[in-house]
Simulated scan of single mutants.
Amino acid sequence: MNHDFFHRLSDAARAAIDLAEELEIDDKGEGDHYDPVTQADRGAERAMRAIIERAFPDDGIWGEEFGWSREGAARHWSIDPIDGTRAFVCGLPSWAVLVGVIEKGQHVAGMIDLPDLDERLVALDGETLLNGEQVRVSDCASLAEARISTTDPALFNDAQHEGWQRLYAAARLKRYGLDAMAFARVATGGLDLACDTGLKPHDYDAIVAVVRGAGGHVGNWSGGDDLSGGDVIATSSYALYEQAIEAIRG
């Protein structure tokens, strides 16, 4: 596994998405919420799975659209072919191709690819590169000076919304609607904090490696590092993370 391999995955996903000329949209939300999926999602996942299968036939693959291959393998690839499909179908540039690599429970590598912006973030061997150049998080260590983001406060339950409102009141600048792009911006220093709830492993597996490889911190909304509940905060520093948790708790 090297940087070139992630570039191959990105190129294949981008090509498959470009080939999906007719944007047929299905709703997999089962009636309780709108959860769009397109032929572009499925095509991109198929293309990446095929490359991984050939290069690493013993590895597991867990894709959002087609599930598991070799579940239980010591190392597996977590794929979200289009994170932010709502943004994608609206013609917004914040959607991303996400790939995370998990080995023995540890996030060892990841990619956040932003095709519409031609930005490819790859985390490997403990460092994160943006189009081949190393990036670092900002030096922000104060919530009062922080630029923060969440995708949509309407997705929070009552307790989470109250916590977000306290974060909102304490921070300097707030932005919405960026999906995985917000976490990419933490890694590149444009934002200091990004948080969301209700995330699935496909949504955060790539983010963990990318943010940590840029020197940032990733944890949950309770002050720990177990992300299985889907509540995720990425920050430029552990000091900022601690202040965010204190604000959420009130």
Score class of each variant (00 low, 15 high):
57 P>K: 02
58 D>W: 02
58 D>K: 04
62 W>S: 03
63 G>W: 00
63 G>V: 09
68 W>Q: 11
69 S>M: 09
69 S>A: 14
71 E>N: 07
72 G>S: 10
73 A>V: 08
75 R>K: 11
79 I>R: 03
80 D>A: 02
81 P>T: 03
81 P>W: 02
82 I>T: 04
82 I>Y: 07
83 D>V: 02
85 T>H: 09
85 T>M: 08
85 T>C: 07
88 F>W: 14
88 F>K: 11
90 C>S: 15
92 L>D: 12
93 P>N: 11
96 A>D: 05
97 V>F: 07
99 V>T: 02
101 V>A: 13
104 K>G: 01
109 A>E: 05
110 G>L: 02
111 M>Q: 10
113 D>A: 05
114 L>R: 11
115 P>R: 04
117 L>S: 06
117 L>D: 11
118 D>C: 08
118 D>H: 05
119 E>I: 02
121 L>H: 15
124 L>W: 10
125 D>K: 13
126 G>S: 04
127 E>T: 14
129 L>Y: 01
131 N>G: 04
131 N>E: 05
131 N>W: 01
132 G>L: 12
132 G>N: 12
134 Q>H: 05
135 V>Q: 01
136 R>Y: 03
137 V>E: 03
139 D>F: 03
140 C>L: 04
142 S>K: 09
143 L>V: 00
143 L>I: 00
145 E>N: 13
146 A>E: 00
147 R>H: 12
147 R>E: 14
148 I>C: 06
148 I>W: 02
149 S>W: 01
149 S>D: 08
149 S>M: 04
150 T>Y: 01
151 T>Q: 05
152 D>K: 08
153 P>K: 07
154 A>M: 11
154 A>I: 13
155 L>P: 09
157 N>G: 06
160 Q>R: 02
161 H>W: 08
162 E>Q: 15
165 Q>E: 09
167 L>T: 05
167 L>E: 10
169 A>G: 15
175 R>S: 00
175 R>H: 08
176 Y>C: 10
179 D>H: 13
179 D>N: 14
180 A>S: 15
180 A>E: 09
180 A>C: 01
181 M>F: 12
183 F>D: 08
183 F>K: 10
183 F>V: 02
183 F>A: 10
186 V>E: 05
186 V>G: 11
186 V>Q: 12
189 G>P: 11
189 G>M: 11
190 G>P: 07
193 L>C: 09
195 C>R: 09
196 D>Y: 11
197 T>L: 03
201 P>N: 08
